[in-house]
Design a protein around this nucleic acid. Structure first.
Lengths: 217, 217
DNA sequence: CCCCATTTGCCGACCGACCGGTAGATCCGC
DNA sequence: GCGGATCTACCGGTCGGTCGGCAAATGGGG
């Protein structure tokens, strides 16, 4: 009596679906704590059936991470690449990245931290792509520094701080929260930009007065 | 010939040692990926021997997290509590917390993120303590806002951003890096403070001009 | 249109490895 | 010889992953 649904799955769609479901579960429970049975059940297959489409747990994680890096390349780095001013470029990257995280639910961000679970070869690939992004931002900050628009801080520390703020978003943002995502993006972008940008009128940050001249720098 | 060392372990010292070793391994590999055998081997005991001192894996994690919260209470919140100005209080917390992370190796910070591994009861306890800290910072930001010293941003978003920067430190800081920890603390504190503090001379952030008046706030 | 061989999608049963944790014997300083 | 510390041996259970096979599609040749 139970009419078999037999939805028309194209093979690659089925695989994509598995990636998506797995990403959601792994985001909530972490990679190690997520069993293949968990994923299979959520997908609506048995474990053996699921293995028809995927190669293994580690490769699944690697695929998700690669997809995450693809979206960052496509929707954050690429749109900002051609922009003229360094400040404009940085602001665009911060804003686009923040918006991406809010819209994607953050699976993508959080799983990028499970590097230790990858095989050395896969880890190297992901690390390399992350470094490209990091160096893009750091290069922009260095350009800002050469224009006198960066605070008197180490560009690497500034870059790490920016990534900290950005990557943390997915840990606190709730889709059903009080603030609209647009308001969050706006406030967040201002906070992030202000953290590294030297204010035009004040060449010296006020706190310099707190330290005696010539103290151990 | 091998003279047995038999170091004189007081029972609680032994337990403390296990906590410390476990925290180090779990920081590198994550909670789930760390087996009790891993820890036992690193401690120099068999698994059964180790269970003489600890109650179980989950309770071990809970103890480490509680210790982490103790140090934050003791070395970050408490010293800042009595301070007069909101700005001074915030700066002190940021600086002390950052310094703590650099000095402790960061075990403490990272493991605080493995909340999902705790039993519901333990999770509630840790979450409550984290919330107290969060509200302390947010309260300070609100006070800054009432004094007109906070950027025109939501205090919660600002607080989350601050915690993001701070908690991210342990992911990039290497003890053998080029920068001295003092230089890092100094730069980082300036970045963090600037991200939320309204610059004295500029009452309106420049980007407000980009949005039409009365746009959806 | 039918028949049948081949492929595809999927499953129940199962594997060896390892997990967290325990029982009971042994060791050793007092 | 007593009691805490530590060991060897083992438990039940779960892990990631595989195997052989069933049933539904697929596709030609007649």
């Amino acid at each position: 009596m139970k009419a078999k649904v037999t939805p028309i799955w194209r093979r690659e769609d089925r695989a994509d679906h598995i990636y998506r479901v797995a990403a959601g579960i792994m985001r909530r429970k972490g990679y190690e704590a997520t069993s293949m049975s968990d994923i299979a059940e959520a997908v609506g297959l048995t474990k053996a059936g699921m293995y028809h489409y995927i190669r293994g747990k580690e490769h699944l994680l690697f695929s998700i991470m690669s997809f995450a890096m693809d979206t960052v390349d496509q929707h954050v780095i690429e749109p900002a690449r051609g922009l003229a001013g360094a400040e404009q470029r940085l602001r665009t990257m911060v804003e686009l990245h923040a918006r991406r995280i809010l819209e994607s639910g953050g699976e993508v961000t959080i799983l990028l931290e499970e590097m230790w679970a990858l095989t050395p070869a896969h880890r190297r690939i992901i690390r390399r792509r992350k470094r490209v992004y990091f160096e893009t931002v750091r290069g922009t900050l260095k350009q800002l520094a050469s224009e006198g628009k960066l605070r008197k801080v180490d560009p690497s520390v500034a870059t790490f701080s920016l990534f900290g703020m950005i990557n943390w978003i997915s840990r606190w943002y709730r889709h059903d929260g009080k603030l609209s995502s647009e308001a969050i993006v706006r406030d967040f972008t201002e906070i992030a930009m202000s953290s590294v940008l030297q204010t035009a009128g004040a060449q010296e940050p006020s706190h310099f007065a707190l330290y005696p001249a010539g103290s151990t720098l």
